[in-house]
Structure formats: structure tokens, C-alpha cells
Design a binder for these strands. Sequence first.
DNA 1: CTGTTAGCGCGTTCAG
DNA 2: CTGAACGCGCTAACAG
Lengths: 363, 363
Amino acid sequence: MAGVTLEQVALEARVSTATVSRIINGTGKVSARRKKQVMDAIEKLGYRPNLVAQSLARGQSMNVGVLTQDISSPYFSQMHKGIEQGFQGSGYHPIFVSEEWRDDQDHAALEVLLSRRVDALIVLGGYIEDDVLLKISRNTPMVVVGRLVPGLEKQCLQVNNHHGGLLATRHLLDLGHRHIAHIAGPDTHYDAVERMAGYMQALQEAGVPLNRQLVVEGQFSEEGGMRATEKLLKLGMPFTAIFACNDQSALGAQLVLQKKGFRIPQDISVVGYDDLSHSAFIYPPLTTVRQPGLKMGRAAAQCVLDLLSEKSPHLPAFHNELVVRESSGRAAGSEVIVPAETATLAVEAKPVQKRKRASKKDS
Amino acid sequence: MAGVTLEQVALEARVSTATVSRIINGTGKVSARRKKQVMDAIEKLGYRPNLVAQSLARGQSMNVGVLTQDISSPYFSQMHKGIEQGFQGSGYHPIFVSEEWRDDQDHAALEVLLSRRVDALIVLGGYIEDDVLLKISRNTPMVVVGRLVPGLEKQCLQVNNHHGGLLATRHLLDLGHRHIAHIAGPDTHYDAVERMAGYMQALQEAGVPLNRQLVVEGQFSEEGGMRATEKLLKLGMPFTAIFACNDQSALGAQLVLQKKGFRIPQDISVVGYDDLSHSAFIYPPLTTVRQPGLKMGRAAAQCVLDLLSEKSPHLPAFHNELVVRESSGRAAGSEVIVPAETATLAVEAKPVQKRKRASKKDS
DNA sequence: CTGTTAGCGCGTTCAG
DNA sequence: CTGAACGCGCTAACAG
């Protein structure tokens, strides 16, 4: 950690350390002559301020902790990038730490940040208890993304996942689909639950009864999406569309469907959620609800900056946006509005036939 | 940045700060009785060591800088995760910063890390000049991943990209392909160049002349892969397989091919490189060369740890591994070894016909 | 074993 | 304008 010190610069420039400090930080007036001396000395010695010492002296570390779920997650990475961009040029820098191990009662991840004396905290979802966050927020500016902490509403950046679920499902309904399956996320995830609520509301609005059997859990992952889809197919319950709670599970769904010979969207439509960076490039390109991850990250950073400069934080509203691509299309035979059947036991049901519209047996 | 101080703990426990420090750090012997007093005080006050002050006093920040290309890149994210894992429990923590803006003569990213006095540096590829790195490495332990810095060989973690290119291309050759296109990466990227070299060597070994027109640049991105593939198809030059320099461009290639009606792998085989987390789930699942990103990240971290503890660093060799999935298959009509034609102007060539094997006109 | 005392590198009064 | 001196929170000799 060695390096040239302020004192060495002062010595070289034949001034006091205070003067050098003033010049570096632009604090107080300094004569042009001395200023030049000092600048020369800095240049000559290759001086670089020691941020650690500055931190201790000033009482702020210029670091902002970011508590994330998984640093490698395609979903969060957009936010990470936005956060990084948001702090560009501010002097602050984000320090990322993954929550990872959930059964961690000591909140080791948090500890890493707190002991490093981060000046603020950005929390991306996660499992840390509300009251823990609330307590920390009393001493440390905090912005929470994708989650609503009671008592901290003004610093919670949210997108309306409920609305997104609504958009996705309405889109499918508009295309004539009446039997829409849903691949849900873990019910521990606020986002997932909200998306599903949107799905249910859309159905209700359209007068389409909810068929609980068409709702299966997909764990937010590709594998989960695959398993869920296989389960749906085995059910033998007809459906012409799937709304997956995120793109990852939608990808898994598409894979299974295509492997089984279903054409997307001719046989079955698929809609995802998140608009991951690769979702536009899979085949067929995925219709999805875009999460403005980059913007959200930037906004979170900006909000932190506001908080740190005592300005009243401004959290813009974020809207999910439906991105229609090629994985969704009109329901086969959608000219006929099929009366929904009661959600009876799927005893007589046989596996959906391949290469045929899953809804055919309805008509 | 406020918080309980050592001194307050000492006061509460009626001992000196030195004693508290000893207990916290396990330095020196302390009587059990005092130890309990101190532990109680710590507990009562909720003391948490100030890492900033520790850093200044000890002369080490317990932070390791990671200079990456893009914090949101699906390719690098595996390494990021590996790095984070590698430092788990070591007391050190990675600080990521994206190089981002290439036309940055001041190396702002580096500056962020250096002024924070990171104890070591992990450099993931990038454009920072060799001599700059070399100079920094004299004061700061450094590990470079995916790049060879002359004079720093022992700290350069590499996978044999050349070998990977060889594997991928041989695989296609083994399947009977003789007209193999290559979507190259930017020639500023060491990795990309090496992969292409492997491709060329494999062709040579097999006695298949290189057709330079079948090598197009894809910029490591999905869009690039799409453009490259369109270009290839327009060429009218027959080919039955594509080896893309990374999965992202392979994804773009698959998309274009499928949109144009080609079946993968029946009409055209595709092989990628990296094995991104979603590559197993796209349709058809991508045959690719796996980069052990997670392991590499862990190894880089371990190497840094070794360097920091003066142990002789150990960098294991990493091998690329071919992962055969469903995007590659036997070349159509591969029972006939087609004599390679001379790479003449593609004047008489017409666009490859859809739904037909691109190689048909050869046979 | 334990307390006292210097620093670590820099910011910031407080007198000139 | 400028410099001397103290403090940030903690570690590390150095004496007891």
C-alpha cells in the first residue's frame, strides 16, 4: 500500500502539508506561485492521494455498498452496470457483494460492507429482514431496489411487477389465448408473486377463470422452466400459451416445447419477463416484459448521491414495457371463444399431442 | 461513517485500547477474565472494527482490485463470481471496476483502484498497455487473466484458446464438414485471434484449404454474429458449418439461420465458444467449447492470496473442453469427401438455397 | 500479560 | 494566504 505521501510532496515543494492538501481539494485560497510549485512536485513524484487516509480523516469512505443476489446473474447484471455508471465521476464507487448463502444468520455480506464503512447502501432484493434494513438505514443512507420495506417507502425503487404481469397476460389474451399457463417464481420472491398476481388479475378482467393446475413453479431458472413445462405437458390440460415469470424460465420452456415438436408461436405462445440481453436473439425471439435494469441501476445510484448530498432523493417511476417479438402469436382457432372448463381432476386428460394445437380438443 | 470505537470499548471494559486490539486480532496473550470483559463490552456496544482505520494502520486495505471489461458481460460474470468465491473467508474483498471507455488515456478505472490502495490487482483482459501493467506489478501483486503480458508470465492465467479453436474445428471436421465458416472476433482480442489460429490449424491438419471468404468478423456480440452470418449467406459460398468465436455470436448466427429456414444441425452445424450459462438452453442447445470461468476466477483469487502471503503462486493449467450438444451434427452428404475448390471470386455463386443442404451443390 | 506511546496519511481548525 | 498542531480509529513496538 506504499506510495508517495502528502508530506513528501510538501517537502519537495517547500510548503506545508496543509497547503498541499488545500490545493488538492480546492479548499481555501492559495497563491498561484505555490500552487505551481506544488503541482510540479505532485507531477514529479507521481503523487496519488491515499483514499484510505482521506477516508479516515474525512469520515467518509467514498464507497457505496451494493448488496446483490448474485454477481453473475443475467438479471441483476444490468442493474449492476447501471449502478456503476450512475456513480461515474461522482467520486463514489460501488462495492458489490453477493448475498449468496441464505442460511447466514450473521449476514456476512452486510458485515463486509459495514466494516468497510460504506457511505451508503444499495440493496437489490434479497432476504435480509426488513427490520435489519430499517435499523441500518437509520445510520446509513439506503436505497432498496425491487422490494418494499415498510417504513422505507421513499427509498424503495420499484417497478410495478403486478402491472408487468398484467401486460404480459393481456397481450396473450388479446391474441385470443384462453388457456394460459403460468410458470411462477419462488413465492419467497416479492417480484414473482406480484407478476403472478398481475397474471391472475388479467385473467379475471377477461372473465377467464383461473386454472390452478396451469400454474407451476419454475424457480426463476432455465432448468426450473424446463421442469415446469414438462409438468404442464404431462398434465394433459390444454393450453395455448405460457407466461413465464422470467426470461430464464421462458427459455427453458421454449427449449422443452421445441424439443417436443411444438412450434412457437404457432402451437404455443411464450412470453417471458425481464428482457435479458440475449432474449432478443434466441429462436424465436422472445416476447417479454422489459425491466429497465440499466435505468433502475442508474436511478438507484443517483438517489444515493442525492441522499449523500442531503438533497431530497428523487426516485422516478419505472414502467415495465411489453416487448413483442416472435414467440407470441394468435391463438390457434382463436376465432372461437372457448368456454373455460371447470378445473376438475385431469383424469381423462392425455398428453397434449405433438404437432397439433394444444387447444384443438377444445374446439 | 460513525460507529463505536475501540476506545469506547476499552473504556467500557476498563482496559487499554491495546488489549482490546489484541483480543480482536488474536495478537498476544490476554487473560481470560479481561477477554470476557472485552467481549461483553463489544457485544454490549455493538462494536464493529473500522476497516478503514485498520487499513491505514496496517498498511493494507484488504481490497483487491479487479479490472474487468464489463461488469454485466455474460462472459466475464462467471469469472467475477469465481473471484468473489475465491476470496470468501480470506478477509479480502474484490472491488470491480469496468474499463468501459477505451479512449481513456488516463486509465480512470485503474486510478479508482490505485487510489483506494488495493493490495493486489486482477486484470481480466483489457486494453491497458503491457508496460503500464508491468510497472504497476512492481509495487502491487498482480494476476492477469486471459492475456499474456511479457515479463509477467508467471502471473498470467491462461486457457489455451488456440487449443479450443482446434477442438471446435476438429469436431466439425470429424463430423464430415469440409466447408466450415468462421465468425471471428475483433483482432484486438488476443483470445479471438488464438481461437481463429486454432481453427486454421485444424483445417490445415485435415488438409482442408482455408477459404478466407468464409472468415468474417462478428465482434463478439449477438448482433455481430447475425451480421456475419448474413454476410456469409450472401456470399453464396457453400458451407455446412459455422464455428463462431464465442457463444454470443453463435447465438446470433443460429437466429439468422433459423429465420432463413435452415435447420440446425441438419442443414448447418454451429459451434460456439465459452459455454455461457444459457447456451445449454437455447434451441438447439449449443455445442461449444467450455471456458471454465468459475474455476479460473477462483484460481486467480487463490493466486492473489498466495502472492499476498508470499507463497509461491500456483496457477493451474486450464483446459478448454468441448461440450457437444445438439447444434452440431454430421455434414449432409459427408460420405463424399468434397475436394476443396480454389477460393476464387464468388461471382457465379447464388444465395444458398433455403431448406436445402448448403453443400448440396458440391456433390 | 498489560498499558503507554508513537505513528499510518491526510483534513482541518487555529493562530499568525 | 500559510503553517503548526491535533485528531480520525487502530496497530505495533516498547516498557513495565
